[in-house]
């Protein structure tokens, strides 16, 4: 079972990445690990550094995908992003945090994708 969940997550991130590339994003990093957790995707677009949190669900039985980004989770994401900016000396660059919700059906085919810009703020 755990493997299935990881698999779904990986699949969602792949789909999100393809989507971003098609929209002209330049992918800088994937699954970047920090002492506080992990950043799913880091991309660059129009001079903005964009951090992305990807959420994948195969059913909405437990609510829409983005609802699982709770306040605590948001705080973790912000810490991750700050770490990244510090690590690569990118402070002062315009940046934002987006979220991507990937909904799959039971056969794991893409059903819907939602890109929320500026999803998380300090």
């Amino acid at each position: 079972m755990p493997r299935t969940r990881q698999h779904i997550g990986k699949l969602g991130e792949k789909i999100a990445e393809t989507f971003l590339i098609s929209r002209g994003f330049l992918i800088l990093d994937r699954n970047f690990s920090t002492p506080f957790g992990e950043i799913d995707l880091i991309a660059e677009q129009n001079g903005y550094i964009v951090f992305l949190e990807v959420k994948t669900r195969i059913s909405e039985r437990f609510g829409p995908p983005l609802s699982s980004i709770t306040r605590t989770k948001q705080r973790h994401i912000l810490k991750n992003c700050q770490f990244y900016l510090k690590r690569f000396g990118l402070y002062g660059r315009p940046c934002r945090i987006d979220a991507i919700a990937v909904s799959l059906d039971t056969r794991r085919e893409l059903r819907a994708l939602k890109h929320v810009k500026n999803a998380i703020e300090l």
């Binding site: 912000l78 002062g92 315009p94 940046c95 934002r96 945090i97 703020e121 300090l122």
Partner: peptide, 8 residues
């Protein structure tokens, strides 16, 4: 200013 989005 640039930086992580915030409003204080």
């Amino acid at each position: 200013a640039n930086g992580l989005p915030s409003f204080s």
